[in-house]
Nucleic acid binder design. Structure first.
Lengths: 329, 329
DNA sequence: CTGTTAGCGCGTTCAA
DNA sequence: TTGAACGCGCTAACAG
């Protein structure tokens, strides 16, 4: 691998000059700039990112934090989209990124985690998925030692931004479509987990809709579990006109229960995971939503790391974020 | 953040001495070792991994390469397990890891990719999922400039190892159980993709079983698609006694077809994805398999990076790697 | 066994 | 506008 020194030699300039060209400094004449670029091209030179990170104290390194197993396995698809979006954007913006899973830091104190992160020169953290009782992480965020971006959790401070869709409105939209299509009056709403931030927002959406249309609705917590949703549907669906679920996985569970009970009720989910059926095509739009959130999260992290203040960022969402299938049985 | 110099000062030794105890060098007296460790503890010192990577030319940095969208979205769960396993092991062995997705390097030539990787001081690559026609990557591997570990693809050279389960045997086992439980004679085998490495191995397993038990079997390629499997089942399942699929997703598709046709046939899948039903519990064993493969892959990368020669590594697999459900309709 | 010295590859003053 | 020189934090010879 050619180093910056080789380039300097070949271009007949000093190392620092090459560095300046590389980092788009203002005070370099067009002529030498061209000579340097020519040398770079000829030598196939690529700056060593580690050396650069060590030298410039302000190289951005951000940690991506995922928790695949906290809620349910089946949302891995969503995390993948988050991850893909963030990594893509990281590459575009020339940002170094480190992937973590919650489990890798489990059992450690906030101090230990902070040291660990600092030792890796990490200045920004993006957290995909955090519940209300993740005490340690709330402390890490609260200390404001890193620029943090939290997805789907309303935590904002000087150095922390939150990125998410408007879950209340989204749930409202989805439920509304389901209810109106079949003129339902009694809704069974299967929510996620009590300790999840979005859970309450989604319930609010349901409540709002019920208020507007004068519906009756029952809320039960399915904890994003297919099995629990199934059991809930078994128990309550019969006297309802439709089932609205806070996740596709739970929608599958509910539907299976309906099939076994041999009754038909419209069911709708939320995430738009691919598995939801061959209808397929349009679901990809929803996948895109998660991808976009991942990208946006990285941008927001950069924003914070370059001095921006924490804020709330709302992302758009696809209305296709819904599932509905007639069941013939 | 305290640096190595602070530690040296506080312990009253030279910087290099601190470095030696940090890296567990042999020639350090117990006494100074303790003094240094005390200073480290007091100052809450954590070595800066970037600086260390820059300095020691042989610090291991390995790239994890995933391709979530190549086959089908629903196997994200498997990739997550791979990733988790590899990252966990990386942390345990103090190895730096960078996560990539195929899409991030798409369209680039082998040379460009190599430069990119080299510039990041990457010496090892773990590829989770590669098809026969990934020309560029085959070239990168062939050049033997990196220590490569390829999952589920039989590529071995001086610097390349392959890690996988015995797909032939596994498919044999799974199919055998399905066939024997219901004394089936005619099997519909829905394979994956023609360009997938494991596809042929699995078909061999099916063939071997058919030979031993004198079964008749038909092979069709479902390309790991739920929809295609569904169509195949619609077309061929009627005259068969059971359906053996190379993936759970295809098994779901096949089952749905059977339901719509209102006929019953045993169906079995392969991956053991969580979504496969509430039976659930035991499926986790299979998830473990993927996690273990991820871990093993990282170990193998380290082995190669420290001078080991490429080889084939076989991993054990759970027989629960199967799906079977009675359908009442 | 310990300390001194020289880099690793690059960013960044500060003179020139 | 350019370049020499220093330093980032650490590892790795080599002396002592």
């Amino acid at each position: 691998m050619a180093s910056i020194r080789d380039v300097a030699r070949k271009a007949g300039v000093a190392i620092s000059t090459v560095s300046k060209v590389l980092n788009h400094y203002p005070n370099v004449s067009e002529e030498t700039k061209e000579r340097v670029n020519a040398a770079i091209a000829e030598l196939d030179f690529v700056p060593n990112s580690i050396a650069s990170a060590l030298s410039s104290k302000n190289k951005m390194r951000v940690a991506l934090l995922l928790d695949p197993k906290r809620q349910t396995h089946a949302i891995d698809q969503i995390f993948m989209q988050y991850l893909l979006g963030a990594l893509d954007r990281a590459q575009e913006t020339d940002t170094e990124v480190v992937t973590f899973f919650f489990s890798m830091l489990e059992g450690r104190s906030a101090d230990e985690i902070i040291r660990d992160l600092k030792s890796q020169n990490i200045t920004g953290i993006i957290i995909f998925g955090i519940s209300k009782k993740e005490k340690v992480w709330h402390e890490v965020i609260g200390r404001q030692l890193f620029s943090c971006v939290v997805i789907d959790a309303p935590i904002v401070n000087e150095r922390t931004s939150t990125v998410s869709i408007d879950h209340e409105q989204a749930q409202y939209d989805v439920a509304r479509k389901t209810v109106l299509d079949d003129t339902c009056r009694r809704v069974l709403y299967i929510a996620g987990r009590r300790d999840g931030y979005v859970t309450d927002e989604r319930i609010s959406g349901m409540k709002k809709l019920a208020g507007e249309l004068g519906l009756s609705y029952t809320v039960r917590y399915g904890n994003f579990s297919e099995l629990e949703a199934r059991n809930i549907a078994f128990r309550y669906a019969k006297n309802k006109d439709c089932v609205v679920c806070a996740s596709d996985l739970m929608a599958i569970g509910a539907m299976n229960a309906l099939i076994e009970m041999d009754i038909f009720r419209p069911v709708c989910g939320f995430d738009g995971i691919t598995l939801m059926g061959y209808v397929g095509k349009q679901m990809n739009t929803v996948q895109q939503d998660f991808y976009s959130i991942g990208r946006k999260a990285l941008d927001e992290a950069l924003f914070l790391m370059t001095g921006g203040s924490g804020r709330q960022v709302r992302m758009p969402y696809s209305i296709v974020r819904m599932y509905y299938r007639d069941i013939i049985c």
